[in-house]
């Protein structure tokens, strides 16, 4: 089948402002992914097209883009979703500066990520086995399950860049950073609870979330982002992690 794809393009070395370019591709299969089409354009028609991608299987988080108005991973969107005569519109994710074509500057996103101290802190010396060698800290199956959902995050930025609060104010840490914080707040091995909650109680922390719910459907990993945010809000109010 034939697919028509419109791409928001911009090359800072040539273009004053972004523009739409349209490509028509013949012999497409319903199981082709949007990433396959972008590759065909780049490899067969115009090598200057810039995009990020690596795994092509929804696990590395490189290729979040706005596809027909929704944030998706290009490698996870099959053509057949768009019917017999697919018409697809692709543009960079919003709220981050465009570097070239579909590539945006991810630094502000990762700065927010780093700001929430996304690492386990536990200063108690770990247990030692009968042989004198270190052993694992014990954790119950239930305690492990408590933060399972938020460990799935691949830092693709689809949630954060779908959030109107983030578009309006780039200082807002955004859903992805809160998801990361949640992963440690609800891990009973972590000892930085108070500091984590204080960090997110900041004016640019969780309270900028207005529960618009854009983030949850945007997440390619099926993480219940809004729920994670509300659990963090609750933890801030009560001062503890509830189970």
């Amino acid at each position: 089948m034939e697919a028509v794809i419109r791409i928001r393009r911009f090359n800072p070395e040539k273009d004053k402002k972004p523009y739409w370019a349209t490509y028509t591709l013949k012999d497409c299969e319903p199981t082709d992914r949007v990433l396959d089409l972008l590759h065909r354009i780049k490899w067969e028609i115009d090598g200057t097209l810039a995009l990020r991608r690596s795994c092509a299987q929804g696990i590395c988080g490189s290729d979040a883009m706005r596809i027909n108005g929704r944030n998706r991973l290009a490698c996870k969107v099959l053509l057949k979703e768009f019917g017999e005569k697919p018409k697809i519109q692709v543009e960079p994710i919003l709220g981050l500066p465009v570097i070239k074509d579909l590539v945006v500057d991810m630094e502000p996103f990762f700065a927010h990520y780093r700001a929430v101290k996304p690492y386990l802190v536990n200063e108690t010396p770990p247990p030692v086995g009968p042989d004198g060698r270190p052993r694992e800290r014990l954790q119950s199956v239930e305690a492990r399950e408590r933060f399972d959902d938020t460990t799935k995050c691949i830092l693709c930025a689809a949630c954060t860049t779908s959030c109107p609060s983030f578009w309006a104010n780039g200082a807002y840490v955004g859903p992805a950073a809160i998801v990361q914080a949640h992963r440690f707040i609800f891990d009973d091995r972590d000892q930085l609870l108070k500091e984590r909650l204080d960090l997110l109680a900041d004016p640019d922390g969780v309270w900028r979330c207005r529960t618009v719910y854009n983030c949850t459907p945007a997440c390619p990993r099926g993480i219940e982002v809004t729920r994670a945010i509300s659990e963090v809000k609750k933890a801030i109010q009560t001062g503890k992690r509830d189970f």
Partner: peptide, 13 residues
């Protein structure tokens, strides 16, 4: 074991 200490969320018995 060291990965566990670093925070890796292994499944548990």
């Amino acid at each position: 074991i060291e990965l566990e200490h670093m925070g890796l969320p292994f499944d548990r018995t």
